[in-house]
Simulated scan of single mutants.
Amino acid sequence: MDASFDAVVIGRNEGARLLRALGAAQPVARQVVYVDSGSTDGSAQAARGMGVTVIELDPARPFTAARGRNAGLAALPEAEFVQFIDGDCLLEPGWPARALAHLHANPRAGLVFGRQYEAAPDASIYNWMTDWEWNKPLGPATFCAGCLMVRAGALRAIGGYNESLIAGEDDDMCHRMQAAGWQTWCIDAPMTEHDARLFALAPWWRRSLRAGHSYAELGVLHGAAADQRRRAVLWGGVLPSVAALGLLFWWPAILAVAAVYAVSGIRQWRRFCTQGLGARRAAQASGLLMLSKFAELTGMASYWRARAVGRRRKLIEYK
């Protein structure tokens, strides 16, 4: 089996984390390309100092993760397999062999990814929730995040990533790859360590806003993320509206809505407790999960407002 692959790392002002990401990829990849999206912290120069091929994107066009990945892929025209890595992630040494073996054994596999995990999940409830979200279902039709090993020809055949998307570009790519007859595999193997460094509510809220934006746009593009949109509308919009109307016209409605939230919160609390969380941390997790519906609905609404006036939204950065 040919065990060679190339790596594309994308980043923007990742600092020391980028150097660690590049350092983890260099010993195992045939070639490493770093694509920089307007960093002001010397990332591009530092990457060049490590002997990495560096592409600095022209700031005249909007930066997106999709644009960065496409630029990296274009710089590797002969590559058969490409590992995409976000600049705040460390590649597991044993992952490439597992990924390549899976791609060779499954000729209809367009891509494969494994378990991404947080470097410090217990440092904050926000880190823990991010780690929890990374735990994707296993199988041949799962939707990846930014880190994955792709069959380069399959990605080129579907036109690469959609560079106009400021969020949800990975889900969009998986939808198009599946529509073209390719499988998008998640396998049970550690792949990358991610460093979220989320220690406050504000950046976590922006991250949830971005998720809501992607749910709305994926719905337009593919009719996807319907369940996520329904939950955001119900918990973040419908029930609060019912409570507000109850305040004006029929106060028992407020108690009914409060009871629905309480029942849901207790159910989520029990679920998190069964996953090994203590009672306090499980309560925090269930509360954040509910709060995320308000952020997601806000993100969805911002997408629809921008779409209605024909305005392109800027990147929603949370770090």
Rank of each mutant, 00 (worst) to 15 (best):
L221M: 03
A262Y: 00
Y126D: 05
A202P: 01
E296M: 11
A243T: 04
G212I: 03
I85H: 09
M191W: 02
A180M: 13
A21F: 02
R305A: 12
M191G: 01
A211G: 00
V8D: 04
A202N: 05
W304D: 12
W250Y: 15
A71Q: 12
Q116H: 05
R231L: 00
A25N: 08
Y161C: 02
V9C: 07
R12T: 10
A24P: 03
A7W: 09
R108F: 13
A196E: 00
K293T: 09
A243R: 09
I55A: 04
T274Q: 10
Q26R: 15
A244G: 10
N135Q: 13
A99D: 08
F272T: 13
Q268M: 14
Q83K: 02
F199C: 02
M177W: 14
R30H: 14
T130S: 08
I125Q: 07
G114D: 09
A120S: 11
A119W: 09
I85P: 08
E118Y: 01
V32K: 15
V35L: 06
A256W: 03
E14T: 15
L76S: 05
E78V: 05
W250F: 15
V33A: 00
C273L: 09
I266M: 14
A65D: 09
A200R: 13
A60H: 04
G139I: 10
E193F: 00
P203H: 10
D170S: 07
A225W: 08
G181E: 03
Q26H: 04
A101V: 01
G110V: 07
A189K: 03
Q275L: 15
A179E: 10
R115I: 15
R313A: 15
A180Y: 12
Y261P: 11
R270L: 14
Q268Y: 14
R17W: 13
Q183F: 05
I166F: 00
I166V: 13
G160Q: 03
T40H: 13
E14Q: 14
R98A: 14
A157S: 15
L100P: 07
L91T: 01
R20W: 10
Q228C: 11
I10E: 10
G299E: 08
G87T: 11
L234K: 09
A189T: 07
R280A: 13
W250K: 05
A7C: 15
D36E: 05
Q275M: 14
R280Q: 08
G168D: 00
L288V: 10
R61Q: 10
D227V: 14
P27D: 06
A189M: 07
A25E: 06
I10H: 06
A44D: 02
L111P: 06
L22E: 05
L221A: 03
L100I: 15
C273A: 13
I166N: 09
A119E: 13
T274N: 07
A29F: 03
G159E: 04
A282C: 10
D227E: 13
A21L: 00
V233Y: 13
R280Y: 09
H194V: 12
